[in-house]
Design a binder for these strands. Structure first.
Lengths: 344, 344
DNA sequence: GTGAAAGCGCTAACAG
DNA sequence: CTGTTAGCGCTTTCAC
């Protein structure tokens, strides 16, 4: 159960401990012969350097702390995936925590990560006060994902919700729509930006924005459709939904009253969850580059660690439109050649 | 950027370093007065113990290594969530890796985790050879999740796919079905067990099992329905699908030819993904206790670490049936009181 | 190139 | 209860 140490390897190879250390770190100043001997001894003993001892002695760390507000959430899981990819690529490991979107727990989680003196710290969707973030940034590089906070000492990676909604509107306008409504995400995260993006894009096209209050759930999407049916005549020809599940709820409610998507009304989601890719659903939606966000977060950290960057970077990523089968030209108007609609 | 050490705290509080150490570890043999003084000094300096140094000196670890075959997968993300919950509850942190289902990468990932000398190691859905697992188990407690491997030195947590399919069949039989077919998951993970469970349960009821080859995708579900329509007359009254997405594909294909679910045919999924809970879909399905699997994995590790357990434990968890709207009595036969069907 | 010595920040006996 | 003395396993000068 107790693993061999450097001394064991040195003894076995008949060299000093320092030599073993040099070999383990791949130093060029070791004769090929001795290097072989050391490597063989290590191999035979099943030796591998003790990362913590190394870290303590060298005053460096290969640990990146990650505080995830909610791992359960597919969004963050993918961000972590991206983080992990570049981290492991560069020889770093992730030490992960969750904060459950509660400030007190997040504070403890951050403190716990900091106790390992990580090389950097990524905070994914944190809700803690900016002061806590600033504090942490005092002892290690910090990058924020899905949380903006323009402290001069921390980096941040966000996607641009305004751009995303704008893409949705532009796509619909290009298809020939003009009566386009937005089901918003209420007070949910990013909802305000998506709403603003929608309004701005509509105005830019000289169209009248209509925002219906909704939420990030399928039942809310369905309820909002009910309100739509009650109050609007003529009905709009397109809906920019709060997110994918909201869109699914809307589509099923439309379906229930005999309105076809996209034949009678086009619907566009947001998030490009795995849900939207199901052939049965074929939801046109806006994709956030989650994986890239994770990669960029890791890179931001590593730049500070390895290249000593000190000026903050704030990435605002462009979401992209993923066109599937839930959008088409409005009824009575021929499609302008981009696609035919019709579920897969 | 360089954080205060124990010596700084000791100096500031006017005591010895040893005393600070005792206070930090919550030893009872310190006068309340001095404890206060130390705590205050620590607070003022923003001191918190260096976890790695502590670990090195005490020859103990508060790190649990986790090798995830694929974080992208919602199944594992939830298992990690469960692990994290009990780990952080007991003062442990998770250090996470992914292996991408490739043996070579997984081997490196495991080695990297081991270099931190974690208190335990959880392998989620690993594909590495048993020898690698046995090796790892030689230096730290190991628990396997979603991978059985009856080494006498490692624990394992799996769900019982046979039981799950059995639950599905029993549920349908109870509703009055007798022509029940299974769309299987081909060579996918767990598919064989689910198939066996289906066959065994059918036989137990004196019914003829019919397995149609399929896959864990929605398009495969739809294709398999097409085959069903071609070859079976009369049609079966119920389908035990390979998993949730397969079920969704099947339902949409049935829908396309005018067959109602559950009016004409009942469909039951497997996995209870967030998908199935959408009101629009309302899929009756089998739930695997993913979160509990994570909790149990962490607990298995901690039992070995803290209570010195040495005999292996192998948990085989019972999945449960989640009844929603995609199953009902077969056509022409009154429901036997359990539920009415009809989408939410 | 190579070995000896001095820590990294902390814990763990052990005497006072 | 408190301070002293050794390390944990490794890296890092710094002479040889």
């Amino acid at each position: 159960m107790t693993r061999p140490t450097m001394a064991d390897v040195a003894a076995r190879a008949g060299v000093s401990r320092a030599l073993v250390s040099l070999v383990m770190r791949g130093s060029p100043k070791v004769s090929a012969q001795r290097r072989q001997a050391v490597l063989r001894a290590a191999e035979e003993l099943g030796y591998s350097p003790h990362a913590m001892a190394r870290s303590l002695a060298s005053r460096t760390s290969t640990l990146l702390g990650v505080m995830v507000s909610d791992l359960h959430n597919a969004f963050f899981a993918e961000v972590v995936d991206g983080l992990e990819e570049v981290a492991s690529d560069r020889g770093f490991e992730l030490i992960i925590n969750t904060g459950g979107r509660r400030a007190a727990r997040e504070r403890r989680a951050v403190a716990s990560l900091l106790s390992f003196r990580p090389a950097g710290l990524a905070l994914l969707g944190p809700v803690v006060a900016a002061s806590v973030i600033a504090d942490a940034a005092g002892s290690t590089p910090v990058v924020l994902v899905a949380r903006s906070c323009r402290l001069s000492t921390v980096d941040s990676i966000n996607d641009d919700g305004r751009v995303g909604s704008g893409l949705a509107v532009n796509h619909l306008v290009r298809l020939g729509h003009s009566r386009i409504v937005h089901f918003d995400g209420g007070s949910g995260s990013q909802a305000a930006q998506r709403r603003r993006g929608y309004v701005a894009a509509m105005r830019a096209h000289g169209l009248e924005p209509v925002v219906l209050h909704s939420e990030y759930t399928d039942t809310a999407g369905a309820r909002t459709v009910a309100r739509l049916l009650e109050r609007f005549d003529p009905l709009p020809t397109a809906i920019v939904a709060a997110n994918d599940v909201n869109a699914i709820g809307a589509i099923s409610a439309l379906d229930a009253v005999g309105l076809r998507v996209p034949g009678d009304i086009s619907v566009i989601g947001y998030d490009n969850t795995s849900l939207s890719a199901l052939a049965h659903i074929g939801l046109t939606t806006i994709d956030q580059p989650r994986h890239d966000m994770g990669r960029l977060a890791a890179e931001a950290l590593l730049q500070r660690v390895r290249h000593g960057r000190t000026a903050p970077v704030h990435h605002l990523l462009r979401p992209t439109l993923v066109e599937r089968a839930s959008t088409a030209a409005p009824p009575g108007r021929p499609a302008r050649g981009r696609r035919q609609g019709g579920a897969g």
